[in-house]
Amino acid sequence: MKREPLVIGDLTAEIPLVQGGMGVGISLSGLAGAVAKEGGIGVISTAQIGFRDPEFDEAPIETNLRCIGEEINKAREIAPGGIIGCNIMVATKRYEDYVRAAVKAGADIIISGAGLPSKLPELVRGFRTKIAPIVSSVKAAAVICKLWDRHYQTAPDMVVIEGPKAGGHLGFREEELSHIGDLDYDGEIRKIAEEVRQCGMKYGKKIPVVVAGGVYDRKDVEHCMDDLGADGVQVGTRFVTTRECDAPAAYKQAYIAAKKEDIVITKSPVGMPGRAILNKFLQEVKEKRKPASRCRQCLEKCNPKEMPYCITDALLNAARGKIQDALLFCGANAFRAERIETVREVIADLM
């Protein structure tokens, strides 16, 4: 069954699929460009995006801001005319500068979570860049819609609903995630979609709703789009084990080797629960603190002296293939990976 395109204002993705933004260094220009080339929306994570640059250690933020444009340009070389977006966490130190850098570099859409992107409309004013908050509850959706309406007389261009099976940082309490099967999340998705619909009606536009978290195969896509009425899906974990993914080979193999019982919930220094693959690193940080090697200015609210470990150190190790000393973020279905595929094969299977 051919799916309808995903229409976001004057942007049209022929395939209603958004590739999840995964940092550090997991979804950069290689993966985003490949997805955009196939007709989906390719997304670059700006989290410590300049980590490979020789100037990164001395000037991390300035290097990151410069590398945003460089990665967007590389993705456009892979997919001329494709849709390229950026995932920017609200928790990022100097968040506003990251958004401005992405907008000036020509990002088609900014997808923003890990906090409420309350000022996002102001930061893109005067540009064609679309804006999409990530929400996990009807309360969060209502708050952001009302805030943007009251302060900026605008509404989201798209809304991403991220469920409890997603990878990385999660917008749920730890006790909720330990009883995932008991959560009536389909009901929450329907409530969020209705809230978004009402918001769009006020502005005379349809705001597409994209469902994320645990989308791994065609059956998941059919459930989200046919049963729940979503306009599209966001997929992250499934793209990690593709040839085009920017992650190192050892990272991809960790997914392939993982068993269901290896996928665990861990408390991140960010203050949110996260989902990751159990390894030596996670076992060690349960028992003792791992001091930061140096501060690379990643999070707005961070006191390096109090953190159990440095999340940048842990994610940089993952991006560099030091798997046993790394935080290996993943979605709930990461254990289902069996082989390395191409982006085209994954999209064909999903759609």
Rank of each mutant, 00 (worst) to 15 (best):
R243D: 10
R243T: 13
E244W: 02
E244A: 08
E244G: 01
E244L: 06
E244C: 02
C245S: 13
C245E: 06
C245N: 04
C245Y: 00
C245T: 02
C245K: 05
C245D: 02
D246M: 12
D246N: 10
D246S: 10
D246Y: 09
A247G: 10
A247T: 01
A247M: 03
A247N: 06
A247H: 06
P248Q: 06
P248K: 07
P248C: 03
P248I: 04
P248V: 06
A249I: 11
A249R: 08
A249Y: 12
A249N: 06
A250D: 08
A250P: 03
A250C: 01
Y251V: 01
Y251P: 05
Y251F: 15
Y251G: 07
Y251D: 03
Y251A: 06
Y251H: 13
Y251L: 02
K252D: 01
K252N: 08
K252S: 07
Q253C: 00
Q253V: 04
Q253W: 09
Q253M: 15
Q253G: 00
Q253R: 12
Q253H: 07
A254C: 06
A254M: 08
A254D: 04
A254F: 09
A254K: 07
A254V: 08
A254Q: 01
A254I: 06
Y255S: 02
Y255G: 01
Y255T: 00
Y255H: 13
Y255R: 00
I256G: 07
I256F: 10
I256M: 11
I256E: 07
I256Q: 07
A257Y: 15
A257C: 03
A257M: 15
A257N: 15
A257H: 14
A258Y: 10
A258P: 11
A258W: 08
A258N: 09
A258V: 10
K259H: 13
K259P: 01
K259E: 15
K259A: 14
K260D: 12
K260M: 12
K260Y: 01
K260N: 11
K260S: 12
E261R: 13
E261T: 11
E261H: 05
D262M: 12
D262T: 05
D262H: 13
D262I: 11
D262C: 12
D262R: 09
D262A: 10
I263P: 01
I263D: 04
I263Q: 00
I263G: 04
I263Y: 03
V264Q: 13
V264N: 07
V264K: 15
V264G: 06
I265S: 07
I265L: 14
I265A: 05
I265T: 14
I265F: 14
T266A: 15
T266M: 14
T266C: 03
T266G: 13
T266E: 14
K267S: 14
K267F: 09
S268F: 04
S268T: 15
S268H: 09
S268C: 12
S268Y: 03
S268D: 05
P269W: 09
P269M: 08
P269I: 11
P269L: 11
P269A: 08
P269Q: 05
P269G: 12
V270I: 15
V270D: 01
V270C: 07
V270P: 00
V270E: 12
G271C: 05
G271F: 04
M272L: 15
M272Y: 13
M272C: 04
M272T: 10
M272A: 14
M272E: 10
